[in-house]
Design a protein around this nucleic acid. Structure first.
Lengths: 241, 241
DNA sequence: GATTTCGTCAACAGTGCGTCGACAACGCGG
DNA sequence: CCGCGTTGTCGACGCACTGTTGACGAAATC
């Protein structure tokens, strides 16, 4: 019965901007734009307190076991005050995810900047970057992955991040193929999507301690698959059924 | 607080047995054990009605948007009567998942029975079987994947199914390696885990219509990765960092 | 016909969510 | 100093959903 389109539909702008909090229309929208020095210590860093408290809580239990009350209490305010800053606990997670998204973008760029053209180990760097991003914010990424199921906003944001990785990976694959160091085969985008989704799932399983997961070095297993899939022999004929 | 080993720890037996409903202790424990013929038409197939209604509902919306009341109503009983049959809506999904687990096992066995030893296309059959299992119960598997985040029982059952696939895959990989038609590399189990997790995630993305997903033939993309990862050249030296 | 078992339900209590209106502190222009 | 809008806070409400209890009927059993 819940209206599908939440009032916080401006989540698109959330890509890297501030949190999608329902702040009342900024009154100081005039010249105080560059203002960073807080004339007061209240207000703006309460938001930060919520974010930090949330990240801390998510390190010990999943989002669906954290109530808005917990979040508010962790930030030292009452439950109803919480809603002054965020529309829901999903909005908090989304805001947290925004930071990760930004960092993921930066790390990806940095990782692939080292390899000028299409050196043989470009995707190796990509895997390492992916792994680092995931690990650096384990709690947030794990929680976001869980919340994808119930929150369209988080799902969309996650997709945005993954799409970036996939596009970057596909570019590398195509460069390798152009160099002749990788055989042609299925569309590079499809291959890149499959490999990145594998990374996501395997890293999740590993960090969450799930049952079917590589027992040894996770990154090595991933690199092996990537290398084989990209540089290995082309797949055999599709077998007439 | 939930004890890790749920009282329904016989979930292993649940592979094909009845649902883990909180039915009151069987009073007719005496000689009526073999009784199958229902003297009345009520009771036992109400359970089926719930299951069927649930599967139908899950085809149109995710589990977290289905209330116990919806489930009960779909089966033609009141909400409180529902609890006579199942402890929660997760229990219903778990029961549904049990069937899929049984079918998955059967299909896996059948798929790998065709290939006596380690014929070159054994894992291809595995992928097809996986894909079919997933597709045949799309609603249930999608819902189960979502519910994994919040329900330990479902997570455990899912793990059990995946573990089966992984073990079977690992056996095939080792056979291929023994034959000399696949090079050595990372542990077969790790490789098998990564590949099966990829399948799960990619199929989920494809069936759910998510954004980063192969655009073309999904199965072909998966086969390409499997083939390359198993039969491709061994990964290069791990690069001293 | 009395009793047990099966199945059903209305009603209750609990939890969490999101919203509303009152209310305090602050800054500011008079 | 005083009104006055703004910023931030909170208690209390209504709502949706969950899981449990106790009472009630209808078969079956003796």
């Amino acid at each position: 019965m819940e209206p599908t389109s939440s009032p916080t539909a401006d989540a698109a702008s959330a890509t890297a901007s501030g949190p999608a909090a329902p702040r009342p229309p900024a009154p100081s929208a005039g010249a105080s734009q560059g203002r960073r020095r807080a004339p007061r210590m209240n207000g703006d860093d309460r938001e930060r307190a919520i974010l930090e408290g949330a990240e801390r809580l998510l390190e010990e239990r999943p989002l669906h076991e954290v109530s808005v009350d917990d979040l508010a209490r962790a930030a030292g305010i009452s439950r109803s005050s919480f809603y002054f800053y965020f529309a829901s606990k999903e909005a908090v997670l989304l805001s947290l995810l925004d930071r990760v998204a930004a960092e993921a973008g930066a790390r990806r760029t940095a990782a692939l900047a080292g390899v000028t053209e299409a050196s043989p180990g470009a995707y190796r760097a990509a895997i390492a970057a992916f792994h680092e991003t995931f690990r650096a914010h384990r709690a947030v990424t794990l929680a976001a992955a869980d919340a994808r199921a119930s929150s369209p906003e988080i799902r969309a944001q996650w997709s945005r991040v993954m799409d970036g990785w996939v596009a970057e990976t596909a570019a590398v694959i195509e460069a390798e193929r152009a160099r002749g160091s990788a055989p042609p085969g299925v569309p590079a985008h499809d291959l890149a999507a499959a490999l990145n989704l594998m990374n996501e799932r395997v890293l999740y399983a590993a960090f969450a301690g799930e049952s079917p997961a590589p027992a040894g070095d996770v990154v090595e297993a991933l690199v092996a698959v990537w290398h084989g899939a990209i540089h290995g022999a082309p797949a055999p004929a599709p077998l007439p059924r």
